[in-house]
Simulated scan of single mutants.
Amino acid sequence: MSLDVVDLRSFYDSPAGEVARRLIGRIVRHRFSNCTGYSILGVGYATPYLGVFREEAVRVLAFMPAQQGVINWPSSGYSASALVETTTMPLPDSSIDRAILIHGLEITEHPRDLLAELWRILTPGGRILVIAPSRSGLWARLDSTPFGHGQPFSRSQLRDLMRETLFSPTHWSEALYVPPFKHRTLLRSGIMFERIGGFFGLPGAGVLIVEATKQLYRPIPSLRRVQDSRPQFAPAPEPVGIAPVSTFEP
């Protein structure tokens, strides 16, 4: 089920949404720490995480799925948001240096097509951050947050999906260890939850965050040795029932 853009905007205006933006945003910024001169694309509902790049990147775009709806972003100046079909984005090949996918992979009916399209528009060596709900996390089990809608992922499922679409995962992170409750005191403890959960590698994080690079060539699977794969033939038996040919001497 796809979330409406109004619901997403309302969530990020709430205390829980502010905590999510802050905790996920610190990882996004850490992984994409210097984007001077780059083109950056946010896909899904990425606008809460794109503002920090506007001062240094050449361009920052926000593409939102057609079934979700679109809002004007940024609030001032020229609009950089667009309503698109995420499997056929209106961008040329190899035109984006960095991509952020959030609130998109779990709700699309064609996750492989979406990632394949992002592979197409990324430059050689381009990098992508995919943020997806964790199957083991509490945030994916409550539909009061956007992360409780759509298909959550395990780490192995997300890794296999990335590799199938020719992305090479280079770094894994987790966020949202803090429970998605509305109690403000609990939400203020978000940083403490993140530090404890990250330090001990505890299960139960709300989202998985994988950074991956674009592979230019499809990896060649390991092959068996040629001689092992050839059919084995037994020696032919001696012919029987045939008289020997005599040698004629004049």
Results as ranks from 00 to 15, higher is better:
Asp7Val: 02
Pro48Ile: 04
Gly25Phe: 03
His110Tyr: 09
Leu50Ser: 02
Leu186Gly: 05
Gly17Trp: 04
Leu114Tyr: 15
Gly42Lys: 03
Ile242Ala: 09
Arg224Gln: 11
Phe200Val: 14
Arg54Leu: 13
Arg135Ser: 10
Phe193Glu: 00
Tyr38Lys: 12
Ala82Leu: 12
Ile27Glu: 13
Leu105Ser: 02
Phe181Cys: 05
Pro219Ser: 09
Asp97Lys: 04
Val5Trp: 08
Thr145Gly: 11
Glu109Pro: 00
Leu166Gln: 11
Ile40Met: 12
Leu41Thr: 01
Leu118Met: 14
Ala140Pro: 05
Gln232Pro: 00
Pro179Leu: 09
Pro124Glu: 07
Lys214Phe: 01
Ser154Ala: 10
Ala132Trp: 07
Ala140Gly: 12
Val58His: 06
Pro90Ile: 08
Ala132Met: 10
Phe53Ala: 08
Asp113Asn: 12
His30Thr: 14
Met64Gly: 00
Ser168Pro: 00
Met192Ala: 12
Gly241Arg: 06
Asp113Cys: 06
Gln232Thr: 11
Leu158Ala: 03
Leu202Ala: 12
Gln227Val: 12
Glu109Ser: 12
Pro221Gly: 05
Ala140Asn: 09
Ala243Glu: 14
Ala80Leu: 09
Trp73Cys: 01
Ser136Gln: 13
Ala212Gln: 00
Ser39Trp: 01
Gly204Val: 06
Gly197Val: 07
Ala99Val: 15
